[in-house]
Design a protein around this nucleic acid. Structure first.
Lengths: 255, 255
DNA sequence: ATTGACCCTGACGTTACGTAAAGGTGTATA
DNA sequence: TATACACCTTTACGTAACGTCAGGGTCAAT
């Protein structure tokens, strides 16, 4: 299959100008040109363009991409695995930015205070991540393999931001539940807040919330001794209390 | 606290030149200048710079940022929530790219075939907006609402034994998945076993199995950050890996 | 034969800075 | 008090990766 400039550009989501520019700088030459000088691209060029876009996505300069693709040791599959790693690192960086935004929201609402340093933490770590993302060679030569690997491991741990959000939600729920248990009133404000937090926590697992399922789970909390043991750790009767709170909560839900 | 150009630039992870440029174009003027003309930045400028960097991160042009920050209706907290949404969307986009890389690896190794269109799917951000709507709401209705509600009913009727079998099945699936992830091959034997276990586990929720729904759920695992968070706990990329394994699994199923 | 959507090659414009060049400032130390 | 040295200033040209015309040729269908 052969593609004209426009066909390939639309398929790849780039502009025709971009393809002509890549031709101009020798990054992506068409397979052939027709008598009138029209550029025609073949399957190899399609794959090469995909490679180029992977690198471009990672912020590698076109000149560098050219060198990489020209290297005699170039191994497409190996490089793709590297791409994958870089993209995962980028995702971790995004997680940090998201955490930063959430922290900033909390600060603006007066719930917490942020130092000036903290305000920029996520942006700076990006620089570190990106620097490392210059395909590692400089950093590895400079600081040696070990420290780079250590840094990577550290970053990997930061990955669990989502998981942390989930567990902190569960923790908050359990604390609220413990407070509510003291009141003894499963219909009370605290207990209902616990039920609501429980619902939010649940939403990390369940694709869609339904009050019936929520109530069903609550009943199971008492029937299943593992759950009972878990929730009754501090105070026996907590599991049953939570069940009652959830049953009231779901009963009061509209729809 | 007042900062000089260098102090602020180091704190924010930008160059001094950048701050002078922002002053030049009127995007970020210093609070005052000392007699010798040195720029001095106060707390308001620090916060404004943070705002600017959030927008810049999202690819907004400086001119546009200027307009946004100048708008009389500007509401910092509201905008931060928008930032958060955008960042989450960006993360979903990254998940797509990661999936694309993994798919490309599989294709290079000859395990699956990719059309030219598929090779570029993840790069096109416009299509993504469409997919967003498609998988965000419609797909959830398609694969979610009806069958999930039925599933919830099933869950409610479940006995404790059923529940135990279900959880241990899920545990086995996750362990198999973790092993398979190390191989990096979603078409491999381990990964396919994980996909099969996933199907069995699913059958505890879903009234009837269909490969289309299974594949739909797999896609949702990557599109929905809650699922991604859940499956990526140990190893980032696991959700995308599971999705690919399931896609391959369902594709190989006789109708 | 004509239309209209495509193609070509220049060539200058744009964004967000990087990078000197040429010189002034602040302060710690000899 | 002199000197070093790390900072600061403005001016100005350089750059990457295209966008955006202008001016003109091509192709497939009507």
């Amino acid at each position: 299959m052969e593609y004209t400039v426009k066909e390939l550009s639309e398929m790849a989501g780039v502009s025709p100008r971009t393809l002509r520019y890549y031709d101009q700088i020798g990054l992506l030459k068409p397979a052939r040109t027709n008598p009138a000088g029209y550029r025609l691209y073949g399957p190899e060029e399609v794959d090469r363009l995909q490679q180029i876009l992977f690198y471009r996505e990672l912020g590698v300069r076109l000149g560098e991409i050219q060198e990489i693709l020209a290297a005699p040791t170039f191994n497409a599959v190996k490089v793709l695995h590297q791409h994958r790693e870089k993209l995962l690192a980028k995702r971790r960086q995004l997680d940090r930015l998201i955490a930063n935004v959430e922290k900033t929201i909390a600060a603006k609402e007066g719930r917490i205070k942020m130092t000036d340093q903290e305000k920029f933490e996520a942006f700076k770590e990006k620089l570190i991540a990106e620097n490392e993302g210059k395909y590692g060679k400089e950093a590895r030569q400079k600081y040696g393999n070990d420290s780079v690997d250590e840094a990577n491991e550290k970053l990997m741990k930061m990955t669990k931001e989502d998981y942390d959000r989930m567990t902190s939600l569960e923790k908050e729920m359990r604390e609220t539940l413990a407070e509510a248990f003291k009141t003894g009133d499963p219909a009370g404000k605290e207990a209902q807040r616990a039920a609501h937090l429980h619902r939010q926590w649940l939403s990390y697992f369940w694709p869609r919330y339904s009050k019936e399922a929520h109530a069903g789970l609550a009943r199971m909390y008492v029937d299943d001794e593992r759950f009972t043991a878990y929730y009754d750790q501090e105070q026996p009767g907590t599991a049953a209390f939570l069940r009652d709170a959830i049953l009231i909560y779901t009963r009061n839900l509209e729809e």
